[in-house]
């Protein structure tokens, strides 16, 4: 029964859920740089997916291939079941893309810019839709301004408006918040969530771990052209996450007492802090016993603090493991 259920789930996933399917994609640039190495990835309908990796990992290359800006060296990519090369029209109709850098015709007005984008994607003019879009992005009162007159944040929003002008099902955002101030980043995150509520699948790249953690349903970690893992953000945290208990001591210790050797404790801050790392998912953390032992030994402490490790720690350990 469980087997059948699993099989059905997989079937459902394969047929209905996968908006973007990347299979064994390789990319070698003409200068010999191997930007992608056997990448396999399935993006599900309606999710927010974060592609997380350091600079030069291959994030831009991967989404550029899916969007048709870069030709892959080998492999296959399907968008909503359409091959991006054989059936490029059907595939690209569904995709909106915001590249990493702002690229706009600065002499055009905001309105003409989005009008052009919509037309380019073969959609009939829909003034009401475009008006709503510009309103949502707080650009409506700037519709007749030329792009050159806009602030950096507004230009970024114009880029998003262009990408959404043809009502795509899938939105690619390449480092949407790189070099963006805090307010704009918040706005961007809110926008992404609103879009997801409307059923738009969102794939964003980032090298900010907090962004992936905050936004994404799932995270793919990429480094040196290899996709190291793809995991639900929550389960990734659960699986990989460690927790740290920090015990702030009244009097510093020179060494961890022998009696506590079983917990593998560490001392930090010149012996003022006693650190206990434990598995975040363990049923039995051993904390109560540890505290009792500490009390029995007459070690006084004035504070306790526990912290969950961030994706950053996870990422560092992953990259180390892959190296």
């Amino acid at each position: 029964m469980a087997h059948v259920k699993l099989k059905y789930r997989k079937y459902q996933k394969d047929c209905l859920m996968q908006q973007v399917l990347v299979h064994n994609v390789n990319k070698i640039y003409r200068n010999g740089c191997i930007a992608l190495h056997a990448v396999d990835l399935a993006i599900e309908q309606g999710e927010i997916f974060a592609l997380l990796g350091p600079n030069g990992a291959g994030k831009t290359t991967l989404i550029s291939i899916i969007c048709g800006l870069v030709t892959k060296s080998s492999g296959q990519v399907l968008v909503a079941g359409h091959d991006i090369q054989r059936d490029y029209r059907a595939a690209r109709m569904r995709i909106g893309m915001v590249p990493q850098e702002i690229a706009l015709d600065i002499f055009e007005t905001v309105w003409n810019t989005v009008l052009f984008s919509r037309g380019l994607f073969g959609k009939r003019r829909d003034t009401a839709y475009l008006e709503q879009l510009l309103r949502d992005l707080s650009l409506w009162n700037k519709r007749d301004a030329r792009v050159i007159e806009l602030s950096g944040g507004m230009k970024r929003r114009v880029m998003i408006a262009k990408a959404l002008s043809h009502e795509p099902d899938i939105l690619f955002l390449d480092e949407p918040t790189a070099g963006v101030d805090v307010t704009l980043r918040r706005d961007m995150w809110a926008l992404v969530r609103r879009l997801r509520e409307k059923g738009v699948t969102i794939i964003l790249t980032t090298h900010y771990i907090e962004e992936a953690e905050e936004m994404a349903d799932r995270v793919g970690v990429i480094d040196k052209g290899r996709l190291l893992l793809v995991e639900r953000t929550v389960s990734l945290m659960r699986k990989m996450g460690k927790r740290r208990l920090t015990i702030v001591l009244q009097h510093p210790l020179a060494d961890v007492p022998l009696e506590l050797a079983g917990w593998q404790l560490e001392l930090e801050e010149n012996g003022h802090n006693l650190i206990y790392s434990f598995d975040a998912n363990a049923e039995n953390t051993g904390i109560p016993t540890l505290l009792r032992r500490i009390a029995e030994l007459g070690i006084e402490f004035r504070d306790l603090d526990t912290a969950r490790s961030s994706l950053e720690d996870i990422f560092v350990s992953l990259v180390e493991r892959a190296a």
């Binding site: 969007c67 995709i95 893309m97 706009l104 600065i106 380019l120 994607f121």
Partner: peptide
């Protein structure tokens, strides 16, 4: 030059 060509290249055209 302005890199706006990305849009034409990614369009169903």
């Amino acid at each position: 030059f302005t890199k706006t060509i990305y849009e034409v290249l990614s369009a169903p055209l």
